[in-house]
Write a protein that binds this DNA or RNA. Structure first.
Length: 294
DNA sequence: GCGTCCAGGTCTACC
DNA sequence: GGTAGACCTGGACGC
């Protein structure tokens, strides 16, 4: 079945897919030139849609491949999930106006950048962000791949769903450590999943929360294993851009772009972006990833 | 092939 | 409040 939806004026599908590394982590599947994105969208606790998303200007096409008939509510879920993942309903005009006032950021609205790909659920985003901490991208991919292959459901050969927290909560610390290669992150993942499974923790409402960013930041920091970097970047996936989420990549690129290669302290990096106010995290991300889209 | 070193964030204990 | 050290893995490097 094919479902269509419209994107805002100037939207770029490839730039959004390549906004950061998420497209490269399962269940997402994509790659250069980022003209299509495959994703799995949970419809009900037992049913998932495998979708192929393509974008041509302001027209987004979703081809759903399911062994069951899609009813109207499932189609609504698929459409709204794709809109959420591609950030199609986020107001960008204020940010684009800021970019137009800065010569080095004028490329952002011209290329339709600034929308950051996110997973269908906050839980998936948080777990993946935990898997990016203190390790190489190769290890992030290994951990995510093992998690989906060993605890997800196989929809078709080689295509596994992202597991539900309850499936992870049943496992032991030692099992996760051994089978996922996630090392000391295992107890953090286990606690998160058990807290969600028992109802002590709830993440999905964060995307629609009206709470101040500092409150959301504090909630994210209360999750063991989610520190300053991870919380700052999860906030970006929630549509809040006033934290930078500084990591080694940002430090390296900032030094190259603004210090002629000399390292700068995190405090100096923070001060540099202060003038961009609530958009500082997105400005920082645009600067350090600009060459991905050139 | 094996051993060693290093990079990558977060937590905790300690000052 | 700031800091040192531990945590764990994959990859690079030297032998």
């Amino acid at each position: 079945m094919t479902i269509t939806t419209t994107a805002p004026n100037g939207f770029s599908f490839p730039v959004t897919v390549n906004s950061h590394g998420w497209y490269d982590l399962p269940p997402f599947r994509s790659g250069e030139p980022y003209g299509e994105l495959r994703a799995l969208i949970p419809l009900t606790p037992k049913r998932t849609a495998d979708v192929l998303i393509t974008g041509n200007g302001e027209r987004i096409r979703i081809t759903a491949d399911t062994p069951f008939a899609l009813n109207a509510s499932m189609i609504t879920v698929i459409r709204s999930s794709v809109r959420s993942m591609l950030r199609l309903d986020e107001p960008m005009e204020e940010f684009y106006a800021l970019c137009r006032s800065e010569p080095h950021l004028r490329w952002v609205p011209k290329r339709g950048a600034g929308r950051i790909l996110r997973a269908p659920t906050v839980f998936e985003d948080v777990v993946k962000m935990l898997f990016t901490t203190n390790c190489s991208w190769a290890l992030t991919k290994i951990q995510t791949t093992h998690l989906t292959r060993k605890l997800g459901t196989e929809l078709s050969p080689g295509v596994f769903t992202f597991p539900h927290p309850s499936a992870i909560a049943l496992k032991s610390d030692a099992w996760l450590r051994r089978e996922l290669s996630c090392g000391y992150r295992a107890p953090y993942l286990l606690k998160l999943c058990r807290d969600i499974d028992s109802g002590r923790m709830e993440l999905e409402s964060l995307r629609s929360s009206d709470a101040p960013t500092d409150e959301l930041y504090a909630r994210l920091r209360s999750i063991k294993g989610i520190g300053h970097y991870a919380a700052g970047n999860i906030l970006k996936l929630l549509g809040r851009y006033d934290h930078l989420g500084i990591d080694s990549w940002v430090r390296t690129r900032f030094a190259e772009l603004h210090r002629n290669g000399r390292p700068a302290s995190d405090a100096a990096i923070e001060r540099h972006y202060d003038r961009y106010g609530a958009w500082r995290g997105l400005v920082c991300l645009m600067e350090v990833t600009a060459d991905w889209h050139s």
